Measured scan of single mutants.
Amino acid sequence: MGFKLLSKLLVYLTASIMAIASPLAFSVDSSGEYPTVSEIPVGEVRLYQIADGVWSHIATQSFDGAVYPSNGLIVRDGDELLLIDTAWGAKNTAALLAEIEKQIGLPVTRAVSTHFHDDRVGGVDVLRAAGVATYASPSTRRLAEVEGNEIPTHSLEGLSSSGDAVRFGPVELFYPGAAHSTDNLIVYVPSASVLYGGCAIYELSRTSAGNVADADLAEWPTSIERIQQHYPEAQFVIPGHGLPGGLDLLKHTTNVVKAHTNRSVVE
C-alpha cells in the first residue's frame, strides 16, 4: 500500500471513529477524501466538511520552486461564519470567499490569524475590503508590521502568557507558548472536538522541520505538551499544512522538532 493511500485511509478511519463516538456532533463529509496538494491548482481553494458547521479550507501556493498546501478553518456561528487564517495570499483568499459563498452561503463576518507569517495573514486586506472584521493577538499584529505583512485590524486580548485561553464565538483560542513562531495560536472547536494546530503542528508525513527561522526550538516541545494537557479530548487535529489526523500529530511534531534540534547540535 502506497504512503499517500495509507495517509488518506488514516484520515478516513479517524473521521469514521469520530462519527461513531459522537453521532450528534459529527456529520463528516462523505463526498470524498481530504484534498491534497496535487489536486488543488494554485489560485483555487477546496472546502472539506469535518463536522456539522465545521470545515477546513485548503489552498496551495508556490514557494521556492515548489507547491505547498495550506489549511485553515471555518466555523459556523449562528447565521454567520468565523474564518481562521487566510488562504495564503490575496488571490487565494478572494477564491476562498467565493467558494464559501458557493458552498455554504453564509457571510464571513470575523477572521482570526493564528500567527504573523504570510500563509496566515496574506489576504487580510481582501477580507477587510469584503467587510470582514480581522483579528490577531497584539504580538501577531506587531510582528506582521515588522515583517511588512498585512496586519489584522483588531487585537485579541488575554493571550499574552503561555497557557492563556479565551473564548471567541464558537471557538476557544489558546496560546501554548512559542513553537513554530513566538505568537502562534491554537484554535479548538469544543462542539466538535476539532483542534486546529496551525503551523505549530505537523502532518504525519512530514519528517523535516522546514521553516524554523522564527521558531523557538527549545520551547516548542513544552508548548505541545500544554496543548495535549489542555485538549486531551480532541479527536480531529488539523495541521497548518497537509493531512489531518488525531492527537498523534502532536507527538510526531515533537519528535521531528527534537530530531532537528539534535542534528543542529551535532553539526
Rank of each mutant, 00 (worst) to 15 (best):
V132T: 10
F63W: 07
S31F: 09
S38P: 12
A90R: 14
V11W: 13
P170A: 08
G2V: 12
W220Q: 01
A144K: 05
I186T: 07
G240A: 03
W220P: 00
V171H: 00
A133I: 12
P35L: 08
L106M: 13
I20Q: 07
L173H: 04
S160R: 14
A130S: 08
K251A: 08
W88V: 00
T86C: 06
I238K: 01
T253L: 00
A95D: 11
G242A: 03
G89A: 02
E150W: 05
S155E: 13
S113L: 11
R46K: 06
L5H: 08
K102Y: 08
R167K: 08
E33V: 07
D29F: 13
L97V: 04
K251E: 08
D216M: 12
N92F: 00
G158V: 11
V37M: 09
P138V: 13
S161N: 05
G242F: 03
S155R: 11
E101F: 14
D118M: 05
A136R: 03
E39R: 10
L13V: 10
D248G: 08
V189H: 14
L195V: 10
W88Q: 00
R76F: 15
E225Q: 10
P23E: 07
V45T: 12
A95W: 06
V54K: 04
S137D: 04
L250D: 01
G163Q: 11
S193H: 10
G105T: 12
I224C: 01
S205T: 05
E233Q: 13
T14H: 07
S161D: 14
A94G: 12
S22I: 15
A129C: 04
V237W: 02
F116A: 15
K102S: 15
E225M: 11
D119L: 00
S70G: 04
A25T: 08
E145C: 13
P244F: 05
L24F: 08
D164L: 08
Y34T: 14
L249N: 04
V42P: 09
A98V: 09
K258L: 13
Y196H: 14
Y196S: 01
L156D: 01
S208Y: 08
V124I: 10
S181R: 01
F3E: 06
V146H: 13
P138S: 14
V187M: 04
A213F: 15
L173Y: 03
K4R: 05
N255E: 11
R141C: 10
W220A: 02
H115R: 01
A95T: 09
K102I: 15
L6T: 09
T134P: 03
A144E: 03
N262F: 05
T134L: 03
V28L: 08
G148F: 12
E33R: 12
Q61N: 10
G197L: 04
I40K: 14
R167N: 06
H57V: 03
P152R: 02
R110G: 12
R206N: 15
D118G: 08
T222F: 12
R120K: 05
L82G: 02
D52Y: 06
L250I: 08
E225W: 07
S191T: 09
E267K: 10
G89V: 02
G246L: 04
L73N: 01
I104W: 04
P152M: 03
G169N: 03
S31E: 09
K258H: 09
H117Q: 02
I58T: 08
V37P: 08
W220N: 00
Y175S: 04
I74V: 11
P244G: 06
D216L: 13
Y175I: 01
G240L: 03
I201E: 01
A165V: 12
G89N: 06
A59I: 13
L73H: 03
V189R: 00
S22T: 15
V11D: 06
P190C: 03
V108I: 05
I17W: 05
T182V: 07
A144R: 14
S113V: 12
Y135D: 01
Y12I: 15
V265S: 07
H252L: 03
F116V: 03
V121G: 01
E101S: 12
N211T: 07
P176V: 01
R76I: 08
A90K: 08
W55H: 04
T109V: 13
L173P: 04
M18T: 05
K91A: 12
K8L: 10
L13R: 11
